[in-house]
Design a binder for these strands. Structure first.
Length: 229
DNA sequence: AGCTGATCATGT
DNA sequence: ACATGATCAGCT
């Protein structure tokens, strides 16, 4: 009984979140920022995460720097995705940082990538740089869970990357690898170092990496959702 | 340093 | 034109 009641409550909360996100469609960044008491920066050059933070604020996501979902009680991750005039993603999507040590015990099933992508509340946003930031608008939010085929692709890429990391080959991995999930630097700058495994199993220092969804993958999600093509 | 939120800017 | 490697801000 208790479980059933909780289940219902979670569904109600999820619906409320989705309704709230849906209601944001059409608003300009200026309008939403005013509502949230935020100031629209001139551009995103020194405020790259600003749009994401604007939506987090509007939807009441638990802020912070923890490696958790945005709505842990709902198991939902919030992601903004900048689109061009044709509805194509302009950027890859950061998923989470990549573990580079103690990786032997890790499995896809328990991975942070799988956890984060289990249920995503995507919010398409106008990413056109030629449009002043204040005038850009919010698109139609949608909930997504990876299909079996999509999860299989993600798992295969994740496993390939993690195998290389475990073998001490992290520095040979480029963003070209992975069908849908790539590994790229994720740091304040290229001089930042973190612990990793070297080619002979020894400890080395390397640039921190993150997992990113390639634009072809997110582009297909967008097309599937909005019946484009 | 290492997470979160990401986009920038350059090379191809 | 586009993706890769680099970078920016805030908080812990």
């Amino acid at each position: 009984m208790k479980g059933l009641i909780r289940f219902d409550e979670v569904n109600v909360q999820l619906k409320q979140l989705f309704d709230k996100a849906s209601a944001l469609a059409g608003y300009s960044f200026a309008e939403l920022a005013a509502e949230q008491g935020m100031v629209v920066p001139k551009d995103l050059r020194r405020n790259k995460g600003w749009v994401g933070q604007l939506l987090e604020s509007a939807l009441g996501a638990s802020a912070g720097s923890q490696a958790l979902q945005d709505f842990p009680e709902l198991g939902v991750e919030l992601k903004t995705i900048p689109l061009d005039a044709n509805g194509k993603p302009l950027e890859t999507t950061f998923v989470c940082t990549t573990p580079l040590i103690n990786v032997h015990e890790l499995t896809w099933e328990s991975s942070n990538v799988r956890n984060k992508l289990q249920c995503v509340l995507w919010i398409p946003i106008d990413g056109r740089r030629e449009v002043p930031l204040a005038e850009r608008t919010i698109g139609t939010a949608f909930l997504w869970q990876p299909s079996a085929a999509q999860e299989a692709q993600l798992k295969a890429d994740w496993q390939e990357h993690m195998d290389k990391i475990a073998l001490g080959e992290v520095e040979s991995i480029t963003a070209h690898q992975g069908e849908v999930l790539q590994l790229r630097p994720k740091a304040a700058n290229s001089r930042v170092l973190t612990d990793a495994i070297g080619a002979n199993g020894e400890a080395i220092q390397t640039l921190p990496r993150g997992f990113y969804l390639k634009t072809q993958f997110t582009g297909q999600i967008i097309r599937d959702t909005f019946n484009l093509n």
